[in-house]
Write a protein that binds this DNA or RNA. Structure first.
Lengths: 346, 346
DNA sequence: TTGAAAGCGATACCAC
DNA sequence: GTGGTATCGCTTTCAA
């Protein structure tokens, strides 16, 4: 069913039917009702391509998911972010275009979005400390919102981020409060902005208590099961192993747990663990003090916020240009008795 | 830069330029070279929307990601599947359209793809035992490939699946070989086809050894951290707890591990664990016998295969209509000494 | 309040 | 081997 067919059916011109359906004011209420009814009855929906050819708007938003050429693994938080963004898009009539590219080909992907004109804007994922994609997109004139920040980039850009620094600072403080002194950090690759911030939070907490960050306890790498596993085995084989481990990713944490198990150690007694984006990562001590890190639900919320921001920018609406989400674990779900992250005092 | 502008520049007609760019045979080699050079130089790329309006083909493929209305969680395997599919699409000039919808609205999403005509085909995710979307898509006449199967559906359809039955049968046999007799199953929701198959494999292995499947050890639910956690705490509090747990999902397994830790038990001694889609899930006994389950890499491979199949179907090429992948853990990565999944004999 | 007609940017048929 | 032109389905200006 096309607009023309529908209008023939109604004995109206395509013009009028189009106006009725798109809420133009000059159509009489009676006509509008009649048109809407017929459209519904015959299951009419405008052809997206024809519409966007006519309007010059694609009604689609692009997400470029960079995947590591080495490990070919997709960070699972993308799934949650995208789910959040998708909600907002569908409510606003936008499609979501996903482009999965090896990290090297990213620039080509953006240019292709521009030249093919199939998106009205894009969401930038996984920004580095000084991300070259930001000036690129600014130069291309394609509206965009960054999921995360690019701290050393001075060009202005819109962003949505969780407070990584604070999350890791709080988590570290919490472990310190329990009496831990040797706390390891299993982090993402440190050209990533989020990883830098996480380490900064971790170091700030240590330093504030007069503990010098120990390079032997700090690790950065791609967040895979194998990474967590290998690092943990190495750590726990040291003469002075850490008593607690702070892990940047749910996936790495799987490996960390495996490593601890393989060494025959017991969680919460021999070693304690805080994971950043695990939905179950609520850790409480006896006094019910929450630790702040990001859960998968909060990533989803970030997706919603970023999509909202981008849609507003595209449509010329007034909108804040940056949002910092406090990823508060009190949002997390708490079932049954909590595991103590205790420090052995014996 | 549009086709018209480019052709004016070259002193040719848009027709000729279009033909040159699209590899039509009647263009002279000289012209083709000249056109290609000019196109490259001026960064010309055809407007996707105009092209697909003219050809009637969208050059895009839709994925509908259903999210549970209750938990709002996205199964992380989608990320891996989509990464695999994305590779194939971009190599073949297709875009990927993602539609994230609450499971209730799925049918509307398909119809909307059809009426808006913005995809040439779709990938169906997470099929149930008799999935109503299959006859729906058949009726709509939209080409599709199912990621998984719908066992009790008799209509023909194309699919790509991992061998869930065999994976769980092998994993169970492996635990039985180690001496385990009380093996729990933490499964996905059992209206899902994959969950039914996994249970079937598990039960087949038990039955073959003369062990009657015990309903008290079998659980089905949404695969979240909380699910694994809650079930595990319940299981381990029983008078006769299982000595091993077979878990359908990496995410549930995070909760299972938490549960085991919280009960103060030791992995591999008090309880053993096999997880289905964890990249580190290579488990070996002393004799280096691999256990077959699906890793994230194999899901990615499934994504590639499904995309390839769908593209071939859309383009009218000859292609197999079903592929069963053996998800072989020997594909998995093996670092360091493996953890024994031993059975205590004391 | 409604309609006719000109694009939007490509492809494809038909002449030459 | 090349070019003119209708066409895809819609929006939008201009007239009525």
């Amino acid at each position: 069913m096309t607009l023309k067919e529908l209008s023939d059916l109604l004995g109206l011109s395509p013009t009028t039917v189009s106006r009725a359906l798109n809420g133009y004011p000059e159509v009489s209420e009676a006509t509008r009702k009649r048109v809407a009814a017929a459209a519904r009855e015959h299951g009419y929906a405008p052809n997206t391509r024809a519409r966007s050819l006519a309007t010059g708007r694609a009604m689609a938003i692009g997400h470029v998911i960079p995947i590591s050429a080495k490990h070919e693994m997709v960070n699972p938080v993308f799934g949650d972010f995208i789910a959040g963004a998708g909600e907002v898009y569908s409510r606003n009539g936008y499609d979501m275009l996903l482009s999965v590219v090896p990290d090297a080909d990213e620039e080509a992907a953006y240019r292709s979005f521009l030249t093919k004109r199939n998106v009205d804007g894009i969401i930038l994922h996984a920004p580095t400390l000084t991300d070259p994609r930001i000036p690129l997109l600014n130069a291309l004139g394609l509206p965009f919102v960054v999921h995360g920040r690019s701290s050393e980039m001075d060009a202005p850009y819109a962003w949505v981020d969780v407070n990584n620094t604070r999350a890791f600072q709080r988590a570290t403080e919490f472990l310190l409060d329990l009496g831990h002194r040797r706390i390891a950090l299993v982090n993402g690759l440190e050209h990533m902005d989020f990883a830098i911030r996480r380490r900064a939070g971790y170091e700030a907490a240590l330093t504030a208590r007069g503990i010098a960050p120990d390079a032997d306890l700090m690790f950065a790498g791609e967040m895979t099961e194998a990474q967590g596993h290998d690092i943990t085995r190495g750590l726990l084989a040291q003469p002075h192993p850490p008593t607690a481990i702070l892990v940047s990713s749910m996936i790495s944490a799987i490996g960390v747990r495996r490593g601890i198990e393989e060494m025959g150690l017991r969680m919460g007694r021999d070693v304690s663990l805080i994971t950043h984006d695990d939905e179950l990562s609520y850790f409480r001590n006896g006094a019910d003090i929450p630790v702040y890190t990001a859960t998968r639900s909060s990533v989803r919320e970030a997706g919603r916020k970023a999509a909202r921001m981008l849609v507003d920018i595209i449509e010329g609406k007034d909108t804040p240009r940056d949002i910092l989400l406090e990823a508060d674990l009190t949002l997390g779900r708490s079932t049954g008795p909590a595991a103590p992250l205790r420090m052995e005092t014996g």
